[in-house]
Every structure is written in C-alpha cells, then in structure tokens.
C-alpha cells in the first residue's frame, strides 16, 4: 500500500512539471485535469489505508466536483480567447 502511494506521488510530479514548463494555457489546463483526478484517487487510497469512511466521502465529492470546476474554467478561458481573436481583425 505504501509503495502504491509513493508511485502515485511520482505520477503526480509529471503533470506538475508540465504545468510549470508549458506556455500554452490549454496544456496547463490538461495538467490541471490530470492532477485533479490523481489527487482525488490518492485521497480515496488514503481512506482505504486508514479504513476511514469520511475521507472516502470527501474523495468522491472532490472527484466529481473538481471536474465540474474544470469545465467552468475551460468555458471562461474559451470566451476570453474568442474575444482576443475577435479584436485582431
């Protein structure tokens, strides 16, 4: 179980590095999506290790709500990019 968590941390480091080095906002959003899923999965794994129902509940909520917030943010960014493109011509 501990090995699983350490492997998860290592997998989490890849999108963090990607978010740091990439200039394109959509690539950063992809990294964010990856991190949101991975942290929720880690919370669920921790809840199983501890046998804690409450933490597991929080993990499930974060898993579904984090995705919803990502969609909201993606739509706002898209609106912004459209406006920028419009003022160019």
């Amino acid at each position: 179980m501990n090995g699983l968590l350490i492997a998860m941390i290592l997998a989490l480091l890849i999108p963090i590095y990607e978010a740091y080095q990439d200039e394109d906002i959509w690539q950063t959003m992809l990294a964010f999506a990856s991190i949101a899923t991975k942290t929720a999965m880690m919370i669920l794994a921790i809840s199983v290790v501890r046998d804690d129902w409450m933490i597991g509940m929080v993990g499930v909520l974060i898993l579904s709500l984090g995705n919803a917030s990502l969609m909201l943010l993606a739509h706002i960014l898209r609106r912004m990019n459209l406006e920028e493109g419009r003022s160019y011509d």
């Binding site: 963090i16 978010a19 906002i25 950063t28 959003m29 990294a31 964010f32 991190i35 949101a36 942290t39 929720a40 974060i62 984090g66 917030s69 990502l70 943010l73």
Partner: peptide, 9 residues
C-alpha cells in the same frame, strides 16, 4: 490554473 493545482494538492 496553477492556483487550482495548489488547491487540489
């Protein structure tokens, strides 16, 4: 976006 990542972590 990175603030979002910080929030998740």
């Amino acid at each position: 976006v990175i603030r979002g990542i910080l929030g998740a972590i």
